[in-house]
Design a protein around this nucleic acid. Sequence first.
DNA 1: ACTTACTTTAGAACTATTATAAACTTTAAA
DNA 2: TTTAAAGTTTATAATAGTTCTAAAGTAAGT
Lengths: 137, 137
Amino acid sequence: MKKTSILNKLRSSGLRPTKQRVEIAKFLFNRDKTFHFTVESLGKHLAKKTTTKFALATIYNTVHAFKKAGHLSEVHLRGKNNTTYFDTNISNHHHFYDSETSELIDINDNEIKFDKIPKAPNGKTIKNLEVIINLKN
Amino acid sequence: MKKTSILNKLRSSGLRPTKQRVEIAKFLFNRDKTFHFTVESLGKHLAKKTTTKFALATIYNTVHAFKKAGHLSEVHLRGKNNTTYFDTNISNHHHFYDSETSELIDINDNEIKFDKIPKAPNGKTIKNLEVIINLKN
DNA sequence: ACTTACTTTAGAACTATTATAAACTTTAAA
DNA sequence: TTTAAAGTTTATAATAGTTCTAAAGTAAGT
Ligand SMILES: [Mn+2]
Ligand SMILES: [Mn+2]
Ligand SMILES: [Zn+2]
Ligand SMILES: [Zn+2]
């Protein structure tokens, strides 16, 4: 992924390309495979691999802006550690959750097929359907 | 449900039948239909409907003991409010989640059927599978 | 009654996240 | 270029759900 693409991600999220935001975007989007992260893991990586200073609030704000713009998704799972997982895979997909390691593993949408799905209750419609398959050893 | 059943719930959870625990157990289990609750909603109910005093820690401890004994289950969902949902329905089942109202609605296990499920990765096995269907208006 | 083990409690501690507001930076107009 | 407006970063405080602590209280068996 090229520099212009990073700048596009920022622009399309309504964010000016500051030093902090460019570093965050590079780490999140300059890669071949998608991945899952927490704000904590992201912050630790940035502290180790860059010389830039990142306030926690900056990381939260930037991640939320990317999410709002549709460049990141959030996994609505409450693991044993009470942290929020973000996902650079924004396609419709599902997850294995390994509670031993607190790790998420993607399940492609086409790896799960439904025979029967209930209809939404009274006046509501279905926004989306999330499957989490909990793993054990 | 009779008083002996309440006492059985407590005994089988390794809990002595104190005033607080009996009130909690009565509220959770003396009813026809299962339901979802948070520690906050449980505490509010108890404060309103009984004359007993309940420290938050007592409610947490008791709910966790019931969960550990298998009398309650926990819904591993992170809603917009960051609270943990508990469920008196301990059967294998799924949920609708209405983020407008922060409400959970049960989906019976037989209302969802799978055609295809991925196999667990490398050395792991599947503990269980949770479906959450997010609703919108 | 006495003893021991368990329980409740208020408040402190902990942790993820969000809010605040002052100092700093980006942008683009003048 | 200067300059001003708008946006951004930061340290720190605030918030909220949950867990911990240790002292005072209660249950159960003798
Ligand atoms: Mn550094
Ligand atoms: Mn009361
Ligand atoms: Zn994913
Ligand atoms: Zn349920």
